[in-house]
Amino acid sequence: MHRRDWLKSFSIVTFTGMVGCRGYQYGHVLKPEAANMVGSHEAGAEVFDPLIDEAVAKLLARQNVVSEDCPLGPNGQPMKKSICFVGIENKSAEDIGDFKDKLYNQIDSRILESSCFQSMSKRMVDAALHETRMRPDALMLPDNMRLFIAVLERSGAPVDYFMYATLTSGTTKRNSSTQRDYELTLELVNLHSGFADKVNAEVRKGYHKTAAGKAWNYNPFKR
């Protein structure tokens, strides 16, 4: 190639470069019915939303049964059970980052919406934990429980149940593919009887290094 031609082509490249410019970042609002984005490396809304839906629905279905010893209100209807939602414990292999408080609020809101429970304000629970300096996992010790309930009741909030949520996971690996099973457990402890009720929900998710990983690992011919 002649140098003149080379210079000509170089000028064209230069000109093309001059017209190039930086892009922008765009955002859009999702419609309520739109499917969640599926996280490529860890769990996100696509896992946590169904976990909460299923676990809370199971818990409410189980607790909606009115027993004979259930106290009745002035209107003759069974009184709502008062729940102190102590917190969520993340025992899974992943850091859930900013999801933790979202999960708490989501579960708390669902419980509040139900006809059989009334949930205690998170701020009151926080204030009681702050005042008593107790760890959430140490509340089951009888002395701690008495003190904690006394602080809550002092502020006019009787408690029937403690509720704990625990997020756990189990990981199965096969070469460059991974399956992770996420489980959300809601544990309801009756403070009057000491008995506990427990429900859980599970979502399984596969992670692959290649696009064909899903088809390779999850097909009808694989066992």
């Binding site: 490249v13 230069t14 093309t16 470069g17 001059m18 017209v19 190039g20 410019c21 930086r22 892009g23 922008y24 970042q25």
Partner: peptide, 11 residues
């Protein structure tokens, strides 16, 4: 924003 390359500046 500047993490995206600008061809003009590069040139």
């Amino acid at each position: 924003l500047l993490e995206q390359d600008s061809l003009a500046e590069k040139t």
